[in-house]
Design a protein around this nucleic acid. Structure first.
Length: 423
DNA sequence: TCTGGGGTCCTAGGACCC
DNA sequence: TCTGGGGTCCTAGGACCC
């Protein structure tokens, strides 16, 4: 019998920070989103202090200070590197793996003769902890949704030691009743509000709800959730990584923007990053969209996007910059304080599969020279692990640039930032 | 005066995830 | 003063076709 396990890293970002800096172990610690905006990860010690997920930093700054909580800006190169190591280790313990997010993977595994997967799960947990210093949770079920629920139960039940098999219990309903409706995978804010208004409060009640009512209101998405809850398999394990459908780079500004010049600079920087990402994944785009908006929390709201469909797919930074700079005039508005902007590369295709333009733009010789130039820039930047070479427009100081004042400064991907140990 | 039916494709927007 | 970023999927409705 095949089973599905959902493995995830506990408090992943916080655990990464504690893992590379052991002096943080056992201390309350939170990690902030970009711009030092919200709390996006908490160590278990910080959870115990009832610090909530997602709250704006400025609202709890004083409380954190008082409680002596360590506060860090997010360090994505560290988390990405730890994630890669985690996934590599997991691969050794399974037949098939789907990497679902930076800290989660679905694993399909055959049950042994005695049906007991606990020894297998314990072995993985031990191995990951020894090698990475990170605790993981293993939830086991007959399909993806049930493995997610099992994972939740493993975290909820103190005696589980991080492992729970939903198919090895005989009072399932009792456990399903412990899972609140809004904590089921796929049930978000809107849907849980509706379900609650219908008197459905937990997973057990959702499982027994009238299926036609679900289908009518929630469509196929809701129907699948209920079927999986009952044990049917609707969501397959995706063995091969699907190629991306869009690549997006967007940021909130450290300070609002009112000048077109600043908007152009920001969008240029995002375009350079987006084009790099495409080249790294061997993709090219044939639609470019840019957008900007005011803050969600401001009284006068404005948002606008503009897009251009290209005759020929590309990942050429020089060409993309031209397009984005041209489009930026269409979304700019002098009367609003712009809080965020971004670029989206869409209709992505593999780089070699290209529809050539009959009008032959960009001109042949020129485009080849440009391609060589960009290749060289990518090479140099990769070699020296930073943007040694970039476009002039990015260099000028922009007061709008992101705040990241609390970086841990330690890294597993940058030799000069590896911690020094003095004995 | 009465004004079809069946289909496809595209897009914008909503909802969700981590 | 200060509220993240990057994705996917689904649906409804409009435009268009014969």
């Amino acid at each position: 019998m095949e089973a599905i396990a959902l493995v995830d890293g506990n408090n992943f970002y916080a655990s990464c920070e504690q893992s590379i800096n052991p002096s943080l172990r056992g201390k309350p610690l939170v990690v902030l989103s970009n711009n030092d905006g919200c709390i996006i990860a908490r160590s278990s010690e910080a959870r115990a202090l009832r610090i909530k997920m997602g709250v704006p930093y400025f609202k709890v700054k004083e409380k954190l200070k008082k409680e002596k909580v360590v506060v860090l800006s997010s360090n994505y190169s560290l988390y990405g590197d730890m994630s890669r190591r985690l996934m590599n280790l997991l691969t050794k313990y399974c037949e098939q793996i789907e990497i679902y997010s930076i800290d989660e993977a679905f694993i399909s595994i055959n049950r042994p003769h005695d049906n007991n997967l606990y020894p297998w799960a314990r072995e993985i947990r031990t191995s990951i902890y020894q090698k990475l210093g990170i605790n993981i949770t293993v939830g086991i079920g007959s399909n993806k949704l049930r493995s997610k629920l099992a994972n939740r139960l493993a975290k909820k039940i103190n005696t589980s030691s991080g492992i729970f098999d939903l198919e090895k219990i005989n009072n399932e309903d009792e456990y399903l009743r412990k899972i609140k409706i809004e904590n089921i995978w796929g049930i978000g804010y809107q849907t849980s509000k509706w379900l609650q208004s219908k008197g459905i409060k937990n997973a057990k009640e959702l499982k027994e709800m009238n299926q036609y009512e679900i289908k009518k209101k929630l469509g196929i998405v809701g129907e699948r959730i209920q079927l999986e809850l009952k044990g049917y398999k609707c969501l397959p394990i995706e063995k091969v990584k699907k190629s991306k459908k869009e690549i997006r780079v967007s940021r909130s500004f450290g300070k609002p923007i009112t000048k077109l010049e600043d908007l152009k600079q920001a969008l240029s920087i995002y375009t350079i990053t987006a084009a790099e990402k495409m080249r790294l994944q061997n993709l090219q785009a044939s639609t470019v969209t840019i957008f900007t908006r005011t803050s969600h929390y401001s009284n006068s709201s404005y948002q606008k996007s503009a897009h251009k469909i290209l005759i020929e797919s590309t990942n050429n930074t020089i060409y993309l910059l031209k397009i984005v700079l041209e489009l930026s005039k269409d979304i700019y508005h002098p009367d609003y304080k712009l809080a965020k902007a971004g670029v989206i590369m869409q209709d992505l295709t593999p780089y070699n599969y290209s529809q050539k333009s009959i009008t032959n733009y960009p001109l042949k010789g020129k485009s080849e020279r440009e391609r060589d130039l960009i290749k060289t820039i990518d090479f140099i930047n990769k070699r020296f692990k930073s943007e040694k070479i970039t476009w002039g427009i990015t260099v000028k100081k922009g007061s709008w640039k992101m705040n990241r004042n609390l970086l841990s400064g330690i890294s597993t991907t940058n030799i000069s930032r590896i911690p020094t140990i003095i004995i």
